[in-house]
Design a protein around this nucleic acid. Structure first.
Length: 469
DNA sequence: AAAAAAT
């Protein structure tokens, strides 16, 4: 993720890659072959043009007045905020769904983002807001409002980086649409199948990149050109992370020129934001300043653990203090996660483990059990670092600190991980287990966010309990 | 290193 993106080069590479792919697939549909490609090629600004445009915007239109930093590229576009959901003129059944979810008034990001998301004519948005501040509900509301349920084909596409997050977003959408039974949804994730040659009739597709690409570009069970709203959740990781980037950009490039883009994340590295601006036309941008990125309601600690045994001991002490809450423990590898889970289970601690080497059935099972409180502790990898919303999680433990391929601190992943607690203003605790070789990583995370990470003695259970209380 | 697509 920390890799520099040479996106100008990337955009060109994608062009040729896409062309060959389309030709291969469309071999029998000769007549259509040339048109769409010509269109998109002519439509696309050259990298130099985009770069220039981006620079102008960044120089000229940054406002520092509010704690949300908003860049306005199109002077005619609406940029006001709403204090109530009523002010949005929603379908009454949708409004009913929102209140049924327990929302009373829009959160800060919802106040600012919703007028833009619902604007007519449609307006692109790149938004940043801290974890647990209501981004999902914001774009789900927009997704549901923009659908024309009389048209029986997919019009809204939402991409998530993981299976779990796609399902969670779908569940939020299902709840919000509780009184709008005419709106239909389809998951495009592992384990879902569509008969070959058939066409999807659902209005909304929520999925992960691989399956969406399969369905849209290989089997053609729906038409990306007919998508009017494209949501990219965890957008920074989707456009910048090796493995997701390729698939997402490919899908993105097949969308029609009028498709509304909604990009959301809690983090955007500078060059990732630049890339996002290069692929989203005339966006309204909501961006946080560095000092606002981290949440003050999450207290951060580190524990010195000279050996793996010390780490384990510290963890069992923490385990004893979880109380009514729940804890998520992050490991760097699946192997460590599985090893740790097995060791804790053998020692009589009830723990759940979730990694990418489980089947999708197992994954949903484990998460459902944890959501239901069947286990107090969940051991996992970065698969659950982003987006997962479980209110009862009071403690996040980094058994291993998040690092990038070069072994340097992965500050964005750190922020996302600790953001699994402290949802919607609640208190949360993050505990980092470190040794002399990883202390500098902890230090650079501390400096990056300018937020104190305090020393904690893991033997002092009273201390931990006091914090947890 | 992990994730996402089946194979």
């Amino acid at each position: 993720m920390a890799e520099k993106i040479d996106w100008s080069k990337y955009v060109q590479e994608q062009d040729t890659a896409l062309t060959t792919e389309v030709e291969k697939i469309d071999i029998k549909e000769e007549k259509k072959k040339d048109e769409p490609n010509k269109e998109s090629a002519a439509d696309e600004a050259s990298p130099a043009e985009v770069s220039l445009l981006t620079k102008i915007i960044r120089k000229g239109l940054v406002s520092n007045k509010n704690d949300l930093e908003i860049q306005r590229q199109n002077p005619n576009s609406p940029l006001h905020s709403v204090k109530t959901f009523e002010a949005l003129n929603l379908n009454p059944n949708l409004l009913k769904g929102i209140y049924d979810m327990g929302f009373n008034a829009p959160s800060k990001i919802q106040e600012t983002a919703l007028p833009t998301l619902l604007a007519v004519p449609s307006q692109n948005l790149i938004a940043q807001s801290q974890s647990g501040t209501g981004k999902t509900a914001a774009f789900v509301l927009a997704m549901l409002s923009k659908v024309d349920s009389t048209k029986k084909y997919p019009q809204v596409l939402c991409l998530s980086p993981t299976y779990e997050l796609a399902i969670q977003t779908g569940e939020v959408a299902a709840h919000m649409a509780k009184f709008c039974p005419e709106i239909e949804m389809k998951y495009a994730v592992r384990g879902e199948e569509v008969p070959r040659g058939s066409k999807l009739t659902e209005h909304i597709i929520i999925g992960t990149p691989g399956k969406v690409m399969d369905w849209a570009l290989k089997f053609r069970v729906f038409d990306l050109k007919k998508i009017i709203v494209f949501v990219l959740d965890e957008a920074d990781v989707m456009i910048a992370q090796q493995g997701h980037q390729d698939q997402c950009i490919r899908i993105h490039k097949e969308l029609g020129p009028a498709c509304q883009m909604m990009f959301f994340s809690a983090t955007y590295e500078n060059d990732v934001m630049e890339f996002a601006q290069a692929i989203v036309k005339n966006p309204i941008i909501i961006r946080l300043k560095r000092e606002e990125e981290s949440l003050d309601n999450i207290q951060q600690y580190y524990v010195m653990c000279p050996t793996q045994d010390h780490k384990y001991k510290a963890l069992t002490n923490i385990y004893g203090t979880v109380g009514v809450g729940q804890a998520i423990i992050f490991c760097h590898t699946r192997k460590t996660a599985n090893w740790l889970a097995e060791k804790m289970s053998r020692d009589g601690h009830a723990v759940a483990v979730l990694t990418g080497d489980l089947t999708v059935e197992q994954r949903i099972n484990v998460l459902d059990r944890f959501r239901g409180g069947q286990e107090k502790v969940l051991i996992t990898t970065n698969v659950l670092s982003r987006g997962i919303d479980i209110e009862q999680v009071t403690i996040v433990v980094n058994f291993d600190l998040p690092v990038d391929q070069n072994g340097r601190a992965d500050c964005d992943t750190y922020l996302h991980r600790i953001g699994r607690t402290g949802r919607f203003g609640k208190h949360g605790i993050a505990i980092n287990l470190i040794d002399s070789s990883t202390k500098h990583i902890c230090k650079s995370i501390e400096e990056h966010f300018n937020r104190k990470i305090n020393f904690l003695n893991a033997e002092d259970c009273d201390e931990i309990e006091k914090i947890a209380a």
